[in-house]
Structures are given as structure tokens and as C-alpha cells.
Design a binder for these strands. Structure first.
Lengths: 226, 226
DNA sequence: TTACCATTTTAAGTATTTGTTAATTGAATG
DNA sequence: CATTCAATTAACAAATACTTAAAATGGTAA
């Protein structure tokens, strides 16, 4: 972490100060910005190795900024970490789609943050990202480029919602996602759809993945397992 | 291309005039020089976005000039395109090694040149250099010099947009390009065109390539496959 | 210039796929 | 064994893409 240039972007001065202080203590060279537009300007100037972006910001939010940063030749190779409030879970997906390399949820745990940054710098960019073909185990592979899953050699191209669902469930094998989780992350907090909708999509997935891959926890939710 | 500063470097006044006239017509601000030494002087002065360099020139040839331009802080970020005679193939390799971003062979095809410049300015440096005839699989060959595709022996000369689209889609067979991707890469982030425009171009391509080559993923985008 | 032609974009109606709901059946839990 | 929740199916609704034609656009030649 010594000598690494880090650009911090957040609209809350407290967060900025806190992180700035601590990252400097670990040897980083820290720059700051308080919204997306500023971030881009600063980034073009200092060419940071790593950019830590808050998702919720005025003027230009983190997602937009990230997309733009990925376009610019000066900054497209920088690593980008998103800061997301735990409630706005959906943004994780949007964030990764926008080209982020990792995301960390608030409230911030400093040790976790430092560890993640270290790991990232060590392993190089995109170590954590699910990009291209990801083997999620159980003979199931997910291909983010072609929006398809491969189960024991059989490839299925999935419709959007099904793909989002399988991506979510396999993002943490073994973890149980409640129906509420699923609604929040895939449909977004404000869209209202009936509970049966989830069942139906689960069913369609099971038809393709096989009945044994997704298990139901009655009254709780679903999990992907193998 | 509007407002882009382009520095043309060639020892033949005819070529200079011809290009100068046409690039200006497309909204570029054009500067000229007739050898490498001059080119460097002018470049330091005007800080061009793009430099078009003839390889064969008196006093200082294009390769030398390019190397030098890449050293200078004022010009190292400019994009550089080489003009090479078709026979002097070696220069392509030498040129790219010297730090050029693309090369175009003489005799010049204006449409090709303009398109390559547009693409380069849009996508930023290091547009993939796909030169000559590329076999992208599935019985489809793409010819970058003549803007044509060959499908099972049948050759079609494509209009610009169609050509750009097929080039994009075939640049990664199997990968899905979202509509947003396509708009960004082909039209550029700021141009606003309706979604149907993409459909129509896709359709025209399908009429030529065959219906099975490009597949639609509803709600997501398109991919080239075979 | 002016008229013409090729290309690109928009528009409108149709077709298809995907997503959702509702009604019923089935399974698990206490 | 009754109650609750999930699974299933098919029918319906909504979203999205396809097709065709016609209107802009822009370049080229008389």
C-alpha cells in the first residue's frame, strides 16, 4: 500500500477525513473529491491506482461516475471500489455492471476496508469480479458476457430476470436469500410484484439448472447449493 | 470530429491538400507539416489531438518522428496514425512499435480514413488495429480496407454504420453487446438516436450475413455467433 | 447551384418473448 | 390432519423487438 495513489470520493466530509487519515497512516497517497464530476477531474489529473467511490452523491452519483471513469483512457485501468449503504443492496449489482471491482458496505469497518484494498492491490485488478465465465460449483458455470449458464455442458441463454436471479443466488453459494432480499435486489425497492412471481422464476431456473441446485427454505427464502 | 486538432505530415503537397480539405470539411482544425522535424515543432506548438504521419519522408521519417513525439510531454498523449505504402509492410510493425495507434495504407480511401479517425476519437486511444481481411468465423470475413464482408463467397460492401456495427459485434464473438454498449461505441456518448435505429441496422446486417449469425437477447442486447 | 442517390434515422403497426397473476395442487410443519 | 406456504400450470399483460415504408440527411455529379 506504500505509495499507492488513492482517490476518495464521498460527499460527507466526516467519511472523507476518517478514511483519508487512516489510509495515509498505511502509506497511501490520498486525494479527495466530493462528487462524481470532481472525481473525474481529479482522477484525470493524478491517475490514481485506486478509486473509492460512494454510490450516493450529489451532482453525479457513483454509478455514473464509474461508467465514465471506465471510458476515459486515463482512468479506465484504475481499480474502483464502491461504498454502498447496506440498505441500497441493489446498487451492488448496478455497480459491478458499471465496471467496479469490488464494493464495501457502510457502516465501514476499517480493518475490512484495509484488508480488501491490500488483497486487491496484491492480486491485481478484478480478482474479485465475476467477469467472463465463472464456475460457481456444482457443474454450473455462469457466463456474464453471453448471459448464459452452462450446466454439465448444456448451455442455456437466459432471459434477463432469470439471469439476474441466478447471478444473485450464486453470488454467495450457501447463503439464504429471503424473498425480500430478492425483491430488493432484482426488482428494486419500489417496484411491487406479487410473491408468486419469484416462485415462477425459481421454477424456470430449476428447469434449466436441475431441481437439486436451488433449495427452498420454507418461510424464509432460497439458496443455491451443490 | 468537430474541433479536433489534427496535424497532417506528408512531403507530398497533393496528399496534404487533399486530406486537409476533406478533414476540414468534417469539422477538424487542420495543421500541416512536410517532414518529421517540422512536425515536431508544430506539434509542440498546437498540441494536436491526432497526428497523421507519412512513413516515408525526407529529413526525418515518420518512425523517427513518432518515437520522438512519444517522448515529449506535450505530444505523448496525442493519437498517431501512420500512412504507409502498401508495399512497405514492414513499416506497419515498426510503426506500431514506435508507438503509433493505427496505420492506414495508401492509396488512401477517404471513407476508411474518416471512419477510422471517428472510431479512434470516440473510443479513445488503442482502437483495435484490425487490418486487412479478418476471418471472424462462421464463414464471415471482414475486410477493413474495402468496408466489405464476405459471407460464404458472397461479398457485400457495407455502409459506414453497418460496417462499424458488424465490426463491433464480431470483435468478440459470443459476447453480448447491450444497446448502451452499441450506442456508446458506434454513435458516441453524446449523440442521441432512438433505439429503433439499432434494430434497423441489425436487420440490414442480418439480410446480408444471414439471419442466424446475430442473435437477439431481449431486454439485453445482441451478439454475433455461429 | 440543383437534382439525384445512398445512407441514416424515425415512425407506425405487428409479432414475439418475457414477466406476472391467478387458480389449483402439493408438501411440510406443528 | 389442519394450516400454511410453496410449486405448478396456463392464461393474460407488458415489454421489447421486427418489419416496412417513408422522411431526413448528406454527399456527388450534372
Amino acid at each position: 500500500m506504500k505509495g499507492t495513489k488513492i482517490l476518495l470520493v464521498d460527499d460527507e466530509p466526516d467519511v472523507l477525513d476518517f478514511l483519508s487519515y487512516n489510509l495515509k497512516k498505511h502509506g497511501a497517497i490520498v486525494f479527495t473529491a466530493s462528487d462524481g464530476k470532481q472525481a473525474i477531474d481529479v482522477a484525470k489529473e493524478v491517475l490514481p491506482d485506486l478509486i473509492i467511490l460512494d454510490v450516493m452523491m450529489p451532482v453525479m452519483d457513483g454509478i455514473e461516475a464509474c461508467k465514465e471513469l471506465r471510458q476515459l483512457p486515463e482512468t479506465k485501468d484504475a481499480m474502483i471500489i464502491f461504498l454502498t449503504a447496506r440498505t441500497e443492496d441493489y446498487s451492488q449489482i448496478a455497480g459491478l455492471e458499471a465496471g467496479a471491482d469490488d464494493y464495501i458496505s457502510k457502516p465501514l469497518n476499517l480493518r475490512v476496508l484495509i484488508t480488501r484494498i491490500d488483497a486487491m492491490l496484491r492480486r491485481g485488478r478484478r480478482a474479485e469480479v465475476r467477469q467472463g465465465i465463472v464456475d460457481v460449483g456444482g457443474g454450473v458455470k455462469i457466463n456474464n458476457e453471453s448471459f448464459s449458464v452452462t450446466v454439465n455442458g448444456e448451455e442455456y441463454t437466459l432471459p434477463k430476470k432469470e439471469f439476474e436471479l441466478v447471478t444473485l443466488l450464486t453470488s454467495k453459494p450457501g447463503k439464504v436469500f429471503t424473498r425480500e432480499d430478492i425483491l430488493n435486489k432484482i426488482w428494486g425497492g419500489d417496484v411491487v410484484v406479487g410473491d408468486r412471481t419469484i416462485d415462477v422464476h425459481i421454477r424456470k431456473l430449476r428447469q434449466k439448472l436441475g431441481d437439486d441446485k436451488i433449495t427452498t427454505l420454507k418461510g424464509i427464502g432460497y439458496k443455491f447449493e451443490f
